[in-house]
C-alpha cells in the first residue's frame, strides 16, 4: 500500500467476482478525487466522484492521475430483469467501493468493505440483478461520512420492462405504474466545505477530524447550487406543458433530514425506496431522512412557475439550516 498513506480498518482487494456471468448491461466506473464545484457565492469546493470509463476510453482511473468528472457521478440506468455489471477500477492511492443503495445483492457485491473488500489497485465487477423498478442511487461505502459527503454518488434508475400493450417510448414509473412525459432526478444534498479539505482516509486510524460535527453551508440539487443556479439550470428545473405528467425522483442524498415542498403543487407519491406504494399518497410536501427516495407524479392543472423548496433540517434542533430551490415551469 505504498503511497496511499496510512489507513486503518480497510479491507483492500479486487478479486474476481464469484459466479460471474455475461451481463445484460455493463457500466465501467473509475474515480476522480480532484473535481470541483463552483458555488453561487463564487467559491469552489473540492468534489470526488466516479467517472464513466466507457465514455472516456484511455482514461487512467483510480488515483495516479485522477481527473475531474461530473457531479453527481454518471447515472446508472437499467431495465427491470437485467443482470448488471458495475465494474469499479481504483488505483493504489486510495480505496473506494460502490454500494448500490436499495439494491440488495449478495455480500460480495454489496460494496461494504468490512464484509467484502474495499477496492484497491485493481478492478472489481459488482454483479447484481435489477429486480424492482424504481429510484435508487449508488455511492461509495468507504469512510462514508467523508466519501459520500465529498460527492461520491450518482443516480441509479431501474425502468420497468416495456409493456407489449404500450406504444413504443411509453415511460412508466414501474411495471403497470403511472405513465409520465417529463422526468426530473433531484438528488438533494448539503455540503460542509470544512470537510472538503480532508484526505480520503481521514480519521480512520482515530483522531478527531470532525466527521461527527456537520455544519453544511451549501444546499444543492443534483450537483447544482440551490441558492439560485438550480432555479434555472436546465438539468434541474422542470419545463413542461400543461397536460403533461412529470415524474420527480426525489433522492435525499444528504445526511440531515430534509423537507421538500412542491411550490403549491400536489404530488402523488407512487413509490418509495424502489418499491411501489400500496396506494398513492397525495401531499404537497415530504419530510425525508438520509437515503430515502420518493417517486412523485406531478400533473399541474394550471400554467405557471412553481418554486420548489428543499429545506435542510438540523438533526438535533430541527432548525432550517438552508434552502435549495428549483422550479417547475408549466406553459
Amino acid at each position: 500500500m505504498s503511497g496511499m498513506g496510512q489507513a486503518c480498518y480497510v479491507y483492500p482487494g479486487a478479486p474476481a467476482t464469484p459466479a460471474l456471468v455475461t451481463a445484460d448491461i455493463s457500466f465501467s466506473r473509475g474515480i476522480y478525487m480532484n473535481g470541483s464545484m463552483l458555488m453561487d457565492d463564487g467559491k469552489s469546493v473540492t468534489i470526488w466522484g466516479f467517472t464513466d470509463l466507457a465514455a472516456a476510453p484511455g482514461t487512467m482511473a483510480g488515483g495516479n492521475n485522477g481527473m475531474g468528472g461530473s457531479f453527481p457521478s454518471p447515472a446508472i440506468r437499467v431495465t427491470e430483469g437485467q443482470i448488471v455489471h458495475t465494474s469499479l477500477t481504483v488505483g493504489n492511492m486510495w480505496m473506494h467501493t460502490i454500494h448500490h443503495h436499495g439494491i440488495e445483492p449478495s455480500t460480495e457485491n454489496d460494496g461494504v468493505g468490512h464484509f467484502s473488500y474495499d477496492i484497491y489497485n485493481g478492478t472489481y465487477t459488482y454483479q447484481w440483478k435489477a429486480s424492482s423498478a424504481g429510484t435508487y442511487f449508488y455511492h461509495c461505502h468507504v469512510n462514508t461520512p467523508l466519501h459520500a459527503e465529498m460527492g461520491m454518488y450518482g443516480g441509479l434508475i431501474i425502468d420497468p420492462k416495456p409493456l407489449s400493450t404500450d406504444p413504443v417510448g411509453t415511460k412508466r414509473a414501474f411495471s403497470n405504474g403511472p405513465i409520465y412525459d417529463v422526468e426530473a432526478i433531484w438528488a438533494c444534498d448539503e455540503i460542509d466545505p470544512a470537510l472538503h479539505t480532508l484526505a480520503w482516509n481521514a480519521g480512520t486510524c482515530g483522531g478527531d477530524v470532525g466527521l461527527n460535527n456537520f455544519h453544511p453551508k451549501y444546499f444543492i440539487i443534483t450537483g447544482v447550487d440551490g441558492a439560485s443556479s438550480a432555479l434555472t439550470n436546465p438539468g434541474v428545473a422542470v419545463n413542461m406543458k400543461l397536460g403533461q405528467t412529470a415524474l420527480v425522483r426525489y433522492i435525499c442524498a444528504g445526511f440531515f433530514p430534509q423537507k421538500i415542498t412542491f411550490g403549491g403543487l400536489t404530488a402523488s407519491v407512487v413509490a418509495s425506496d424502489g418499491r411501489p406504494l400500496p396506494a398513492a399518497w397525495s401531499t404537497t410536501s415530504i419530510e425525508a431522512s438520509s437515503a430515502e427516495r420518493y417517486d412523485c407524479i406531478i400533473k399541474p392543472t394550471t400554467t405557471g412557475t412553481y418554486t420548489v423548496t428543499v429545506q435542510f433540517l438540523h438533526w438535533i434542533t430541527g432548525a432550517v439550516l438552508g434552502t435549495a430551490k428549483t422550479r417547475i415551469n408549466v406553459t
Binding site: Y9, A19, V21, I83, H100, I103, E104, P105, S106, T107, N109, D110, V112, F115, Q127, W128, K129, A130, S131, S132, N143, T144, P145, L146, A148, E149, A202, G203, T204, C205, G206, G207, D208, V209, G210, L211, N212, N213, F214, F255, F256, S289, S290, A291, W315
Partner: peptide, 28 residues
C-alpha cells in the same frame, strides 16, 4: 437482487446519517 440467488450472507444495518458511524470525530 443477488445473482446468482443466495440465501446466506452478512450485511450491515447502519444509520445513514453517516456522522453516526463515527466515534470521537473519526473512526468510521
Amino acid at each position: 437482487d443477488a445473482y446468482p440467488a443466495v440465501t446466506t450472507g452478512h450485511f450491515p444495518m447502519h444509520l445513514h446519517d453517516e456522522m453516526s458511524q463515527t466515534a470521537g470525530g473519526g473512526l468510521y
